[in-house]
Design a protein around this nucleic acid. Structure first.
Lengths: 193, 193
DNA sequence: GTCTATAGATCGATAGAC
DNA sequence: GTCTATCGATCTATAGAC
């Protein structure tokens, strides 16, 4: 059934964009239904509750992360390429539509979120930290990165900086995340590559 | 009139806490009125609209920042003390109640916010960046900080990292911001002081 | 300055026809 | 799978008594 899958995917894509641009409490089923030319109730058919829909969005992002990093997590690879890919990805997404990552979108309302949504956010953050920690560990072993201290701390610092930078960019413009990304490169000793 | 000022201040304090814990779209006039033992309409008497109330919250934070940094901005001082004070302040606020700074609270919904609220957020971010840039500039001149590149870039990196860390801490627990703060110190060469 | 009462809108969600 | 219709709740904001 092409129609079913197609509509469900469109709903998911729309919810993804709305969640990351307006936050969990900043979009409604109406906002999703109207541009798709369907009704409120049709969205509820595919995703019974707003919590279900939001969890699905977070899980789709988590799956995207796994698709892009599973090989690296299992077999290793060039840490500098992984890092640079993530920086460029963050800058491009931020500049394109000012969207933050789902974690940043959910964190602001976190204590007011349905518990399943909180749990999904936790899973995504755990995955991001695990992956970034491996990138930092391998990068230093490979002689690509220069930093002091525990790779797990450096990983959280980098993730926090990018998350915060995407939010700063909403207020200051796209130059903010570019400046932060370039400073992160300088700190790691990979600027001007 | 003690009563008037007192209630207005209580409303402001309550709104501050609610904004930073639940986001702009995550709290209502009811949430403010009930714990204070007053009614919805009484809040509207002091702050006509939710935008007015939110702008007042942001401006009060901006005033607090000025009170703490005006002397430093005018006459200089010990950059390491300014930096350490800000790190400790951020950690303590984050651990106490999981609140993010107003910028982080407003950034998630930013494109859905009333324009005056967006403008107030911009003013606060500009002030923070200006101050932190001065801290970084003086810190390097004083030989306290070690970093590559433009102090304005380092300043935005640090602010972004702390803002992101406060949000990560909601998901991962208070250890996240402590780890990020310690990594920021290591990067600057002021760890273990 | 605070109240009661309510307007007016929107929200998430459900029931049932098609 | 999408529709119409609607429920019940909640929200921002206002009017007017006290």
């Amino acid at each position: 059934m092409i129609a079913r899958t197609d509509t469900k995917d469109r709903i998911l894509a729309s919810a993804d964009r709305l969640l990351r641009s307006h936050g969990f409490n900043g979009f409604s089923y109406q906002d999703i239904a109207r541009p798709l030319g369907i009704r409120n109730a049709a969205v509820h058919y595919h995703f019974a509750t707003k919590a279900d829909l939001t969890v699905a969005v977070v899980e789709s992002v988590r799956k995207l992360l796994h698709d892009r990093t599973d090989h690296f997590m299992a077999h290793g690879g060039d840490a500098r390429l992984q890092m640079e890919g993530f920086l460029v990805f963050s800058i491009r997404e931020c500049a394109a539509d000012g969207c933050v990552c789902p974690v940043g979108a959910l964190a602001a309302d976190f204590f007011a979120l349905p518990e399943p949504v909180q749990a999904a956010a936790r899973r995504l953050v755990d995955d991001l930290v695990t992956w970034m920690t491996r990138v930092c560990t391998l990068g230093r072993e490979q002689g690509s990165f220069r930093f002091q201290g525990d790779p797990a701390d450096k990983a959280r610092e980098i993730l926090a900086a990018l998350q915060g930078a995407r939010q700063l960019s909403r207020v200051l413009g796209p130059s903010a995340i570019e400046a932060v990304a370039e400073q992160l490169r300088r700190d790691l000793g990979i600027a001007g590559v």
